[in-house]
């Protein structure tokens, strides 16, 4: 449990949000060209990092908008929050 600073609504309790998993997984541009291995990579394989991870969140009980978060999964410390479409912070 922690506070999340929604880029649209401000600081709210984590239970207002829904985690959407790993961010920046690009949807295949040519789905028909994909092999089964590539589909498995896209659909199922995850980095599941212990440490700093880039992920998507949705403010389900607020503005219902998606945004990105950089969070340390070893201590739940939030490093950065940025809107969809923005470049991820490099440090």
């Amino acid at each position: 449990m922690f506070l999340i600073n929604c880029p649209y609504c401000g600081e709210r309790d984590q239970q207002e949000f829904k985690a959407g998993g790993e961010a920046h997984i690009e949807r295949p541009k040519q789905p028909t060209e994909l092999s089964d291995d590539e589909w498995a990579e896209y659909l199922f394989m995850r980095k599941n990092i212990k440490g700093v991870q880039f992920e998507r969140w949705n403010h389900t009980h607020g503005c219902r908008k998606w945004f990105n978060m950089v969070r340390d999964t070893s201590n739940d410390e939030i490093k950065a929050i940025y809107k969809m479409g923005e470049k991820p912070p490099t440090r």
């Binding site: 998993g21 199922f44 995850r46 980095k47 599941n48 990092i49 212990k50």
Partner: peptide, 18 residues
């Protein structure tokens, strides 16, 4: 829960979330 951490050491990814 730390399977993915070990897998990453071997250069693999697993279909897991911890």
């Amino acid at each position: 829960g730390h399977s993915s951490v070990i897998a990453n050491m071997a250069g693999l990814r697993l279909p897991l979330e911890s």
